[in-house]
């Protein structure tokens, strides 16, 4: 039992790491990764929503009729997104302003909905919890990695601290929209390259 639980957890960290292996939830990963701080904030929000919705869907899986399950999943996910939105507005207001529209958009980020359909609806509470946590952390890690690359090259800082000397010219391309696409594409290429060898 313990072993399978660990498997459910770790598959999200590498084998099925969301934005790269599943190519879902791309919009926030492009939009909020201008800096590491934003990326971590967004990652934490996604982890919360994913774990919450997975556990709740798994709890309710015997009650939800399969014909209207998608609508029910959407309501569950939307509830948790609203909770996160209000919490962030109350406790981390500057971050809330920076992430802006992308917090409510977690609802239509396919990951929570996809996991509810593919995993939580068919499994018990504890595996669903592990699955949500693993994928959520995997997602947060990818966000942070992309955020780190873009922040270091785009503004010459890491988590707000200067990395390079004062003579560093920021590579503006990286923090603008085109840089996000190119950078994610190249990261995906590296992931494919490494994954093929292993």
């Amino acid at each position: 039992m313990a072993k399978t639980l660990t498997q459910e957890f770790t598959k999200g960290l590498w084998a099925e790491i969301p934005p790269f292996r599943l190519v879902l939830g791309l919009c926030p990963i492009l939009a909020v990764t201008k800096s590491v701080e934003n990326a971590i904030g967004m990652g934490a929000a996604v982890v919360f929503v994913l774990v919450g919705s997975n556990v709740l869907v798994s709890l309710l899986r015997k009650i939800i009729p399969s014909k209207v399950r998608i609508a029910c999943f959407i309501i569950v996910v939307a509830t948790f997104v609203t909770v996160v939105e209000l919490l962030m507005q109350a406790y981390t207001y500057p971050l809330f302003l920076k992430l802006g529209i992308f917090i409510p958009l977690i609802v239509v980020n396919c990951i929570p909905l996809g996991r509810a359909e593919a995993f939580a609806y068919k499994n018990g509470i504890i595996p669903s919890f592990a699955d949500g946590l693993g994928l959520g952390i995997g997602y947060a890690m990818s966000l942070t990695a992309l955020g780190a690359i873009r922040e270091v090259f785009g503004s010459g800082t890491f988590y707000g601290n200067q990395v390079f000397g004062p003579s560093f010219q920021p590579f503006n391309f990286m923090i603008e929209a085109p840089g996000a696409f190119v950078c994610l594409g190249l990261m995906l290429c590296v992931m494919n390259f490494v994954g093929k060898k292993a």
Partner: peptide
């Protein structure tokens, strides 16, 4: 390694 989504993203960039 660049095929499919990867090159798609670079093109989108």
């Amino acid at each position: 390694p660049l095929q499919d989504t990867s090159i798609g993203l670079v093109t989108a960039g």
